[in-house]
């Protein structure tokens, strides 16, 4: 059983957001959704958890190993980051982009081999972009870029996926595609941490939800317990109302315009 556990995780940087005493936990096969308003430090938290920011205080344990002490090569075999897909700005084809997920399996002097290419092909099938295998990343839509981004992370064969607002720039159809993929990956035993603005997505995929509050506290609990009108209204500092949908068999959250 693989696990990611933080103990009083804090981070401060002169021109980025700060997070304070975050205690979170996620295990193999679970989806943890981080909710919070703009600018509260969701991306900072994601960057700490994925090893991009290493000057954090407190601890981040991956299977009992302290994250910043893990060699970056080994770390890339344990966790993979899915940053926001719109940021992909390379001219490489989808296939060549995904192949880069194998970089840390080779030295600077070697090239990817046949097995790497077979793996990439199978993951292109998994994310459903077979017809775009040789298309330049520049010519892809936001949704396709995001799926490609997840694909590149999967090529690393990680035990933990960390996703920074994977649905933020996507329309409904592509949101559903990404969320379904998230759900199926967790069923295959991958631990997933994803940040989002939308509590409705949390009710769709999350096993547990973490709220990054504006007073810098962090609360984590199971989705049904922690997501309610009061907690969300407080989180976003605007009235939010939920109704149970019989068709969807889950709570649906809406914004009250006043």
């Amino acid at each position: 059983m693989f696990s990611l556990v933080t103990d009083n995780l804090s981070f401060a940087y002169k021109d980025s957001n700060t997070i304070d005493n975050v205690n979170l936990k996620v295990e193999s096969g679970q989806v943890l959704v981080i909710l919070g308003p703009n600018g509260i430090g969701k991306s900072t938290l994601i960057n700490c958890l994925s090893g991009v920011f290493s000057k954090y205080k407190g601890s981040i344990k991956l299977d009992n190993d302290e994250l910043k002490k893990i060699d970056s090569k080994k770390l890339s075999h344990k966790l993979a980051l899915v940053s926001q897909g719109v940021n992909i700005n390379t001219n490489l084809s989808l296939f060549d982009y995904l192949l880069l997920g194998r970089s840390s399996f080779h030295s600077i002097f070697s090239q990817p081999n046949k097995n790497d290419e077979i793996l990439v092909d199978s993951i292109i099938t998994k994310i459903g972009l077979e017809s775009l295998k040789f298309t330049s990343m520049q010519n892809m839509s936001g949704g396709q870029k995001q799926l490609a981004n997840i694909g590149r992370a999967l090529v690393q064969e990680p035990k933990l996926l960390i996703m920074d607002e994977p649905t933020s720039a996507l329309d409904y159809k592509n949101q559903v595609k990404v969320l379904k993929l998230v759900k199926s990956l967790s069923k295959q035993g991958i631990a997933i941490v994803m940040s989002t603005h939308d509590p409705n997505q949390a009710t769709m995929v999350a096993d547990s939800v973490g709220l990054l509050m504006s007073n810098k506290t962090y609360n984590q609990g199971s989705t049904n317990v922690i997501l309610n009108d009061q907690s969300l209204s407080k989180l976003y500092q605007t009235p939010i109302i939920s109704t149970f949908s019989d068709d969807l068999q889950r709570n649906v959250f809406g914004i009250e315009m006043g």
Binding site: S50, S83, L100, P112, R152
Partner: peptide, 17 residues
């Protein structure tokens, strides 16, 4: 081949090891 990886954003380059 390493040059391909360097066309990506910094955070991604770091997390692919």
């Amino acid at each position: 081949w390493r040059l391909n990886a360097l066309t990506l954003d910094l955070a991604t380059v770091k997390t692919i090891g």
